[in-house]
C-alpha cells in the first residue's frame, strides 16, 4: 500500500510542476523549439531546475542502501548508444515538435484541456501497445 501512495505523491508533484511551468500548454513547448522565430526559452529553465534538483537529490539518495519502500534501486542498465536509441529519440522529437506534447504533459493535459490532448494520448497509447506486440520476442 505504501508504494502506490508514494508514486501518487510523485505523480502529483510532477503534475503540479508541469502546470506551474505551463509545460501543459503545447503552444509554450512549441515556442521553446521555435528558436528561429518567436523563441520562448522557458522550457530550458524547467529542465534546468529539474536537472539540478534531481542531480543533487540523486547524489544523496543513491548513497543509501536502498529505497524506503522497495528492495533496491532500479537504474537503467543499457550502456550502448545504438541506432535504436538515436532513431527512437529522433522520431520522438519530430512528434514532440509537431504538436508540442510529450508523454507527461499529454497525460496531465487530459484533466482540463479537452479532446485534442485525448486524441494525441489515444494515438500514443495505441502505438506503444503495437510496438510492444511487434517486439514481444525481443523484449
Amino acid at each position: 500500500m505504501r508504494i502506490p501512495i508514494a508514486t501518487f505523491i510523485a505523480g502529483l508533484l510532477f503534475g503540479v510542476g508541469l502546470t506551474i511551468s505551463e509545460m501543459t500548454n503545447p503552444a509554450k513547448v512549441m515556442a521553446f523549439l521555435d528558436i528561429f522565430r518567436f523563441w520562448d526559452p522557458s522550457l530550458a529553465f524547467v529542465m534546468g531546475g529539474a536537472l539540478i534538483t534531481t542531480f543533487i537529490g540523486y547524489q544523496w539518495v543513491l548513497r543509501k542502501d536502498g529505497p524506503l519502500f522497495a528492495e533496491k534501486f532500479r537504474l537503467p542498465t543499457k550502456q550502448d548508444v545504438d541506432g535504436r536509441l538515436i532513431g527512437g529519440a529522433a522520431l520522438f522529437g519530430i512528434g514532440w515538435g509537431m504538436v508540442g506534447l510529450c508523454p507527461g504533459p499529454a497525460i496531465a493535459n487530459l484533466s482540463f484541456a479537452g479532446n485534442n490532448g485525448l486524441i494525441f494520448v489515444l494515438s500514443m497509447l495505441a502505438t506503444m501497445a503495437a510496438f510492444k506486440f511487434l517486439n514481444r520476442e525481443k523484449v
Binding site: 510523485a10 508533484l13 520562448d40 529539474a50 539540478i52 534538483t53
Partner: peptide
C-alpha cells in the same frame, strides 16, 4: 507566441526534480 516566464518555469522544474528524487528515494525507480 508565448511569454518568457523564467521564475515559474524554474519553480515548476524544481517540483519536477523533487518528484524524480522522491520516486527514487521511495520506490527506487526513474
Amino acid at each position: 507566441m508565448t511569454e518568457f516566464t523564467p521564475l515559474s518555469a524554474t519553480i515548476g522544474g524544481v517540483l519536477i526534480g523533487i518528484s524524480a528524487v522522491w520516486m527514487m528515494a521511495s520506490v527506487g525507480r526513474i
